[in-house]
Design a protein around this nucleic acid. Structure first.
Lengths: 115, 115
DNA sequence: TAAAACCTTCGAGCATACTCTAACGCAAGA
DNA sequence: TCTTGCGTTAGAGTATGCTCGAAGGTTTTA
């Protein structure tokens, strides 16, 4: 599959796909004329990377993750994902707190308007 | 209170405090020699800004918020905070999803290691 | 076969949010 | 008084993560 279709499938721009390649996340094969060819494995990895990215993992951490995945080092993968999971739980707590604070502020503002 | 203490109280660097001032978030008074003097109102606003920031609001949106707060436009404040709250709920949903996905991945990895 | 649409590379540019440097003035302690 | 430390400014630099432009080759479609 060519870059524009891979872009559509993953929701990442063609620019981003080339950028991620430069960072070493993926290595699509190239045909005789130099066009990239994305496999379904590539797509799966890209979708997973997009998920990690959207959940706040930096590209630098993703790089480490991709490296241990490439070495099939499952133990190291588990370690990194456990750390990531911890951060997600922390984020969950933080957001709960921010929601409360914002709701309090809103209550105060609304009572100022009403009375 | 001088900038270094304001920095300590808010957890924002002195650089950041000056930067936020340049963006128009706060306007601490200046003494005869040009030193900034932060009031408790300034601190309160800075802490609230830090909270909005940490919960994902961009400085551009914070600017808008600060502006309507300055005009005591409570209705506009409510509108902005309602939108922010919506985003927080969305984030909460997203994170819930990312936690599930990560836990699934971890389960798969762990079963690969164990067997 | 020719135009339109797609692909390539490389390097530059952009947006956000700081973060620091340089060169200087003021303040407090030994 | 002298040194150390904190403050000031304007403007430059950094980090992250893209995003784009230029110049050119390839593929598809009318």
């Amino acid at each position: 599959m060519k870059i524009s279709q891979a872009s559509e499938e993953t929701g990442l721009s063609a620019y981003t796909l080339r950028y991620y390649e430069k960072l070493g996340f993926i290595e699509p094969t190239k045909d005789s004329t130099g066009y990239r060819n994305y496999s379904y494995d590539d797509l799966e990895l890209l979708n997973w990377i997009a998920c990690l990215k959207k959940s706040g993992m930096t590209l630098d951490s993703i790089k480490r993750y991709v490296q241990v995945e490439r070495y099939s080092d499952s133990a190291a993968q588990v370690e990194l994902l456990d750390m990531h999971l911890e951060k997600l739980f922390q984020q969950q707590e933080d957001i709960k707190h921010y929601i409360e604070v914002t709701q309090n502020k809103l209550r105060t503002l609304r009572s100022n308007i009403d009375h």
